[in-house]
């Protein structure tokens, strides 16, 4: 049996293997990790016929070119406007929209240019990425140097193993899918938060400022956290607390008064005050924000946050139910094979 792998001709600035994360081990310092935009990776997996927990490639900013040595279905998700550019050995090119799967013949080049409407997108491959499991997850946590491909971001020239695509063994016509309305992935700038757990350590003015002013995503952005620029948030006394646990979405404000939203690879404990927490269903859209873009906050109660989580899941499931067969794409590989028969 031949080993299938995906080769990164250009890896992009911060591409990693991600799945739904290794939840449940933060008490020994292991970050939860996993896709920043869980909805997008799950959708990608559904489009290519994978289980939800299959690992895909999280792409940051874009600039990625890959090829796969076996025929596979792929899908780009987490974006509305960006596309896959598929090129054969003759330079024939076709452009495939996001949020649909497409069957790509072995060896063709698959390119994702600079992402236009998001900072984070996902490339799902049928079968899924086959890097080793650690605590039941293949997710990469580059700062903790664990998971994914050698515990690090993918580099130019890396070849990552793929798991077998069970559905591909016999069928030349692997089923392709698309969603018609990817509105769920449209950009947003307003994010809902629950105040606390240390909102009592800030002045009333700081809380008002936090909820009324516009912040900008700083270039200091990675999978651990998103630093924001904007109005200072003043502590009553200081920014230090007895170190405690952190959830993804926690907004930490250290002594300099500038908020940092902690993302999937955040350190498991921290010693700075946390003014609020972005609610779970808003984290995917938050992680789509690019440096320089605006971010604003509005407060909701815990009950509302929990209800909004359930509503977002219902919306996502409803979207999955609307998966349809996409219009056929012209298979350039068979076109040039046809051409070959005439000789040259």
């Amino acid at each position: 049996m031949t080993t299938s792998f995906i080769t990164f001709r250009r890896a992009g600035p911060y591409s990693t293997v991600q799945d739904m994360g290794r939840t449940g081990h933060q008490s020994v310092g292991v970050p939860e990790s996993g896709a920043l935009n869980r909805f997008a990776l799950k959708l990608g997996n559904r489009l290519v016929g994978n289980p939800d927990h299959a690992a895909g490639i999280e792409i940051c900013m874009g600039g990625v070119t890959v090829s796969i040595n076996t025929t596979r279905r792929v899908a780009l998700t987490g974006t509305v406007d960006s596309t896959l550019l598929i090129t054969d050995a003759y330079g024939h090119q076709m452009e495939i929209k996001a949020n649909r799967s497409v069957t790509v013949r072995a060896g063709l080049s698959i390119m994702i240019n600079a992402l236009s409407d998001t900072n984070t997108a996902y490339l799902a491959v049928s079968g899924g990425i086959g890097t080793p499991l650690l605590y039941q997850s293949r997710s990469t946590s580059p700062n903790a140097m664990i998971g994914g491909w050698q515990g690090r971001c993918i580099a130019d020239g890396d070849q990552l193993p793929l798991l077998d695509d069970q559905s591909a063994d016999t069928s030349e016509n692997m089923s392709e899918w698309m969603i018609e309305n990817p509105d769920m992935f449209a950009p947003k700038d307003m994010f809902r938060v629950v105040l606390g757990p240390q909102d009592n350590r800030f002045t009333e003015q700081a809380i008002t400022t936090f909820l009324s002013s516009e912040y900008t995503v700083s270039p200091l952005l990675n999978r651990m956290g998103m630093r924001l620029d904007g109005d200072l948030l003043t502590h009553i006394d200081n920014a230090d607390i007895a170190s405690d646990g952190i959830v993804t979405g926690s907004i930490q404000v250290p002594g300099d008064g500038m908020p940092i939203i902690l993302l999937a690879d955040h350190q498991t404990t921290g010693g700075y005050t946390k003014i609020a927490t972005v609610i779970q269903p808003d984290i995917p859209a938050l992680s789509s924000r690019k440096p320089g873009q605006a971010v604003r906050f509005t407060a909701v109660s815990v009950d509302e946050a929990e209800t909004l989580s359930r509503q977002a899941e219902d919306q996502f499931q409803a979207m999955l139910k609307q998966m349809v067969a996409p219009p056929p794409v012209i298979d350039i590989a068979s076109l040039y094979q046809l051409g070959d028969t005439t000789g040259d």
Binding site: L195, G245, K274, I279, Q280, L308
Partner: peptide, 14 residues
């Protein structure tokens, strides 16, 4: 301040 909130997905037992 026994129970504090970390969003709608974290409960802090203080």
């Amino acid at each position: 301040r026994r129970f504090l909130s970390a969003g709608g997905h974290g409960l802090v037992v203080n």
